[in-house]
Design a protein around this nucleic acid. Structure first.
Lengths: 227, 227
DNA sequence: GCATCGCGTTAGGAAGGCGTCAAGCCCCTT
DNA sequence: AAGGGGCTTGACGCCTTCCTAACGCGATGC
């Protein structure tokens, strides 16, 4: 998910604006609605990844909006409300809301709850597989396939090294960090290990091991994975 | 889900008891833990459907428990805390918690949040039967049939191993995780067990046990079920 | 031009993991 | 009391992986 779409529905202009500004600044794609009707319509048209909903709306109420949404979508709903009463919270949550935040709320808390809701909503899409022109790395299955689709076997140590490098793709990983992550802090001087294993990895994955395309050495500093 | 399993972790006895009584009365299957260590161990053994966790634990703290759980499970975590500070909420939520409730809390609200968490967590009834060219596994009936339709008998331990592997089909399951799930956390070094039982399983299910097609060993790392 | 340093490459031996088998133990059934 | 099924435990051979040491090469600095 590059940028999540958030639908904010509140009848108070200052809250709409505050949320709009803050969320946009954080890189979210924000839709603003003033009434429940608007919210339902916008939700249907824009398919937000999460909804922030004020309970005290004029016209059709917040709980009805929840019902309306739950009729066709499982999008996470975070309810805002000035009402502290337990009965209100229970009603909103049982109607299908995911979270209930009492006004006045802290922006940081709301953002954290937003992140939590978004994190939950995207479980299956574990894009833990990295593709290049010459091979594909699947980090959860712990498998590598070459361009023909045949499997390439890697040893545990080779995997650990590749995991660190791939998880920091494009960035330089210092030798010390690799050694500490894979062998432990007391091995931070054993740069020999890295040379041996990087050669092994390149022999298995690089089309031309003597001219690495993917596992790049930065002399004196560390290694970098590029794709 | 007929009755959901709830793991409650709180160091205050009166809260443990109150939650235990209330949740049991509502038909939940409740496990109680007093410390973070206990909670992690119970979670590994019992696989709760939701965790209620006090943040102010003695010993290893609540946030560490969250990290420990998130290392291997996506079970919903509801955090309880006396701390109102926004920073605490943000930290807990970003560590992987799903919800944050401030003490003192209303039981009805907590129950509603529990229902919300459970509702979210049980979306897709997983396909309970897995078919391969050589056998069919029915996870709910706990039965395996070979290609001719005749039943293959499996022992309880064999079942537990197969269940973990099959539920993570395609993914590599680390030895430690298998040992913890089947025998308990204190057995995480007994890789002997895995060798013995995997051989047993292969003898019963693989067409050619010495060349496994389905139950694959990744030396030094773990096992993987493929179909 | 020479010494030095870091990196890549190779090969061999020690160590450890895996599959396999068999014996012993425990608990449940008969 | 006897039997059996299932789980633990230990021993063995095989094979892979990892560590280690040595050498060559190129770049850099003196």
């Amino acid at each position: 998910m590059s940028e999540a779409r958030v639908l904010v529905c509140d009848d108070e202009p200052q809250i709409r604006r505050a949320l709009g500004v803050n969320l946009t600044a954080r890189g979210y794609d924000v839709d603003l609605a003033e009434t429940g009707e608007q919210a339902l319509e916008l939700a249907a048209r824009r398919h937000p990844d999460v909804v922030v909903l004020d309970l005290g709306l004029p016209g059709i109420g917040g709980v009805e909006v929840i019902h309306g949404l739950r009729g066709w979508t499982e999008v996470p709903i975070i309810v805002l409300s000035v009402r502290e009463a337990e009965a209100d919270k229970v009603a909103a949550l049982d109607a299908g809301a995911d979270d209930y935040v009492t006004k006045p709320f802290g922006m940081d808390e709301l953002l954290a709850r937003l992140r939590a809701a978004l994190r939950r909503a995207t479980p299956a899409e574990e894009a833990a597989t990295i593709e290049t022109a010459d091979f594909t790395i699947d980090l959860v299955a712990k498998k590598v396939r070459d361009a023909n689709g045949s499997e390439i076997r890697l040893t545990p140590t080779e995997w650990q090294i590749i995991e660190v490098l791939v998880r920091n793709a494009g960035k330089l990983v210092p030798q010390r960090r690799l050694l500490q992550d894979v062998w432990g802090p007391e091995y931070e001087k054993e740069t020999n290990y890295l040379r041996v294993f990087l050669a092994q990895i390149r022999r298995k994955l690089e089309p031309n091991p003597s001219r690495p395309k993917y596992f790049i050495t930065e002399p004196g500093m560390g290694y970098r994975f590029e794709h």
